[in-house]
Computed example of a mutant assay.
Amino acid sequence: MKILAFDTSNKPLTVAVVDDGNVLAALESTEKKTHSVTLLPDIQKALKESELSIDDIDLIAVAKGPGSYTGVRIAVTVAKTLAFTLKKNLVGVSSLKVLAADGDENKILVPLMDARNDNAFAGVYQYSNNQLTNLIEDHHTSMSKLLELLEKYDSKDLEFINATDHLTDLIQEKYPEVKILNTKDSLPKADKLAKLSENEPVVSDIDSFVPTYLRLTQAEHDWYQKGHKKYGNISYVEEV
């Protein structure tokens, strides 16, 4: 099965083409450019390196969030457009799960995305039978609550992944000796996204497939603060 996989939910952009487990092309970019400008050219470049056309692709795999609101929307929009217009299967994979795939297979893995103000997007994963299983669902949380939630595990069994310098400081206050992969050593990789996608369900309704944000945007938060109902007859998007 030929898989085109890409992730723009984080600062790095990553694209890969994988055929039955063999990586035909893999591109990672940490350049300070807008993902909306670079994603499609990088997809074209990866296909060219693979000596394939987009018509040869069987499955499109995308990191569906959480992460940068704009970044997640870019990847999901491109994935939905390609899947719908070309009639290809589509799979969405948690962006945190993609980060967890970088971790030690013998550890309990805690992938993170810094959400500012001592908060993070986080999940807890562990390898079982060569597959990543979710022990604690992805969620938006304060670091204090997350670290409290992790007290049931032995710290020597934990590995934090994609921790910024600030999150590293917060973690080490509680776990001075715990294993931590910082952001520069735990870049998301689209070839691992492709592998994960093989064990995820295919999206049944491409039209209704949406990113996983895990928290409101600032605009939505302000809108609801003004008295609008979150679950009323008119949604924030419809109103705007």
Rank of each mutant, 00 (worst) to 15 (best):
Q225N: 15
V203P: 00
Y224F: 14
Y213L: 04
F209Q: 01
K229W: 05
P211W: 00
E200W: 06
V203R: 01
Y224A: 00
D207R: 06
A190W: 01
V202Q: 05
S197H: 06
P201R: 04
N199E: 10
K229S: 14
E220W: 02
A190C: 11
D222E: 15
K226W: 05
Q218W: 10
L214R: 01
Y224D: 00
D205I: 14
V210W: 13
S204H: 05
G227R: 04
D207M: 12
P201Y: 09
Y231M: 09
I206H: 02
P211L: 04
T217L: 08
S186Q: 05
Q218A: 13
S197V: 08
S197L: 09
G227P: 03
Y213C: 03
D205V: 14
V203S: 01
L193C: 07
H228Q: 09
Y231I: 06
L187G: 04
S186T: 06
D191T: 08
K230S: 08
V203N: 01
L193Q: 02
H221R: 11
S186W: 00
T212S: 10
A194I: 04
V203L: 09
H221Q: 14
V202M: 06
K229C: 06
K226Q: 15
V210S: 07
Y231K: 10
K189H: 12
P188M: 09
Q225C: 09
S197Q: 07
S204V: 13
S208Y: 15
V203T: 08
S186M: 06
L216N: 11
V210K: 12
K230I: 08
Q218L: 12
Y231Q: 08
T212E: 14
K230G: 10
Y231R: 09
K229P: 01
W223R: 00
L187Q: 10
Q225M: 14
K192E: 08
S197T: 10
L187W: 11
K230D: 01
Q225P: 07
P211I: 01
E220C: 05
I206V: 15
L196E: 01
H228W: 07
S208I: 12
L214D: 02
E200S: 11
K229V: 06
W223M: 03
K192D: 05
A194V: 08
V210N: 10
D222K: 12
A190F: 05
A194K: 02
E200Q: 13
E200K: 09
F209K: 01
Q225F: 07
T217M: 10
S208Q: 12
P201V: 09
L193Y: 07
Y224W: 04
D205S: 08
T217A: 13
D222F: 13
Q225Y: 06
E198A: 15
Q218E: 15
Q218N: 10
T217H: 09
L214S: 03
L214G: 02
S204F: 14
K195A: 14
K195T: 14
I206L: 07
Y213M: 06
W223D: 00
S197R: 03
P211R: 01
A194S: 07
H228K: 12
S204C: 05
D191A: 09
G227Q: 06
F209Y: 11
L216V: 02
D222L: 13
Q225E: 15
L187K: 13
N199H: 12
A219E: 15
P201A: 07
K226R: 14
S186K: 01
D207G: 12
E220R: 00
R215K: 15
P211A: 02
S204E: 15
H221S: 13
P201M: 11
V210E: 15
L193N: 02
D207S: 13
